[in-house]
Amino acid sequence: MLFGIMSLDKNFRCTTDASQVVGRFAPSPTGALHFGSLVTAVGSYCLAKSAGGLWLLRMEDLDGPRVVPGAADEILHTLEALTLHWDGEVLYQSRRTACYEAALERLREDGHIFPCACSRKEVLASAPHRGEEGPIYAGTCRNGLPVGREARAWRMRVPHRSVGFCDCLSGEYRQCLASEVGDFVLRRADGLFAYQLAVVVDDAESGVTQVVRGADLLSSTPRQIYLHQCLGYPLPCYAHLPLVMTPDGEKVSKRHGTVSLDSSGGGRLIWKALRFLGQAVPAELLNASPAEVLSWGAKYFDGTKVPKVQC
């Protein structure tokens, strides 16, 4: 069974009952913005604003041990300097534990999750095979905890069926959760909530209708669609942007350098991000202000020109 396929109009808006497009940018404050994350910010901003929508900002600071002190404020400063102004208040995941607790309890009551006693080592040893993102859970605790064992984590019980969607920019993508992902963790052994649950709850409760992000998160989307379905949330539209790569084929990350607002001006950075996304931004805007370049992007951004991601 395939579900979750969504259609779009010519302006890359979901053909749902939503009266307004609501996009978002959700950086993790594990360091300052790098060019790859700037591309995502610019792409998500322009796709939302070109449809007359809102653009929200969320700090995905749920994984406390990985958060760098001061990084969130630095990200906000950089976005403001680039005139990437967000609508409403910034949402911090670290302040939303009660919301994730409530969603997990709903899933438990409906039988969608189960406690798991397996350690990482045990999961690796018993995995029948590996999927895109690691070993497939063997289902050891699916029908109850082994005698004498206590729960370490909570896992999502996934169906033996295909979950798919139509990426706004690149076309159809589908995945069999059981054979390609397995029962995935929603609450870890250390008590922290998993990204998959938090992002679904946040998007739904913020009214997000358009999720624009990097292609590295493409394979997460079927899991999130399934969670949306189980929690009774409306589905947003998804668009995955091409990743910025180093010359040796590695994804650009914070360790490759961060966005520098030097004498070259922020407008040049916005211009380069738009060009990377296939937009025909005029050469005469190369030295314009960030606001001028973004204004052009919000008015003329063409989703059909964005390089397609391999689905």
Rank of each mutant, 00 (worst) to 15 (best):
C118Y: 00
L79V: 10
I136M: 01
E122G: 03
E122A: 04
R142K: 13
R96T: 12
E122Q: 09
E150D: 07
A138V: 07
L177R: 10
P146S: 12
V68C: 09
Y92K: 12
L62M: 15
G139Y: 07
R157D: 02
A138Y: 00
R155T: 00
P159Q: 06
S94V: 09
C168D: 06
N143S: 13
L84P: 06
A102F: 00
R96N: 06
R66N: 14
G164R: 11
H77N: 08
A127W: 05
Y100K: 05
R155Q: 02
Q175C: 15
R96M: 09
S94K: 11
H77S: 05
R157H: 09
E132H: 10
A127I: 02
I136L: 04
G148V: 01
S162P: 00
G144P: 10
A71P: 10
L91A: 06
Y100C: 01
L82R: 09
R155D: 00
P146W: 07
P159R: 07
F114Y: 15
P135E: 03
H77E: 09
S170Q: 12
D110N: 15
V90A: 06
R161K: 13
C176E: 13
R108T: 09
R155I: 00
V123L: 00
P159A: 06
D87P: 11
L82C: 07
R66D: 15
E89D: 13
H85Q: 13
S162C: 13
I136W: 00
L145H: 09
C176F: 06
E105T: 08
C118A: 02
E101M: 05
R96Q: 11
T140R: 07
D73W: 12
I75P: 04
K121A: 02
A72P: 14
L177I: 07
A117G: 02
F114I: 04
G131P: 02
A153D: 02
P65E: 09
E132R: 05
M59V: 10
H129S: 08
D87L: 12
Y137I: 10
S170P: 13
I136Q: 00
D110V: 12
C116W: 00
V123C: 04
L84F: 05
K121I: 02
R174I: 11
G171F: 12
A178V: 08
G148C: 00
C141P: 03
G171Y: 13
R174S: 15
G144W: 03
E89G: 01
C116A: 03
V147G: 02
P159F: 03
R66P: 14
R108H: 11
G171V: 14
R95L: 08
A102I: 07
Y100V: 05
Y100P: 04
G70T: 05
A151S: 05
W86H: 15
S119D: 02
A102P: 05
T78H: 04
C116E: 01
A127R: 03
C166L: 14
G111W: 05
C166Y: 13
T83K: 15
D63P: 07
E133Y: 09
I136H: 00
C176I: 10
T78D: 12
S179M: 04
M59H: 04
T83R: 15
R130I: 09
E80Y: 06
E60Y: 08
S170H: 12
E60H: 03
I136F: 00
R106F: 07
E80A: 04
S162T: 14
E122S: 01
R161S: 11
L82I: 09
I113F: 01
L169V: 14
